[in-house]
Amino acid sequence: MGKPVKRPEQSLSERAFLPEVAKGLTLTASRFFKNTFSSAEKGDIATVRYPEEQREYPERFRGVHRLTQRDDGSPRCVACLCCSTACPAQCIHIEPAEYGEGDPRQGYEKFPKVFVIDELRCIFCGMCVEACPCDAIRMDTGMHMPPALERDAFLLDKELLLSLPAADGSVKSANPRHEPGDKTHPGIDRDRSGH
């Protein structure tokens, strides 16, 4: 036994169809006249005419990556490979290197000799930003990858990534960064560890 479905009751005017047609036509005609004869602001047209008009991206929009800079302009990145490990698309290529002898950072951290992101491979998931312990990689540039004809144009290298500013124009990060030997550094360092 199937469950009896109660059919919706229709009034006489609904069954006569024409009044309902008139109602529908009134609605569509009102939209038509409003959108055709009123100014662009007053009409209800939802289309964004893309290249000329651009929708404002939300604040947390994940755009093209950038590498944040330290005060001296070097990358904050310490080449820990967390981002490239976390990356589900495997689009980040890092070749770590040691700082030279005598550099105060030597023995504390590494630096990326090569840092390349393949923006064609990237799925813009933001995992790299989540994974980064140093706030060195961010996706707050507010721009999407501009089109190009060569694939190589989508391979962004370290210099380019470092030069890209955030949407607010900054090339740094607002989070504090403690250099090795920094007295305000809360953790242990070579000078204070006693060995």
């Binding site: 939209r31 009409g43 047209i45 289309t47 005419r49």
Partner: peptide, 10 residues
């Protein structure tokens, strides 16, 4: 164009 105007498109 008319259908676009009816449907709030361009």
């Amino acid at each position: 164009r008319q259908s676009a105007m009816i449907q709030d498109r361009v």
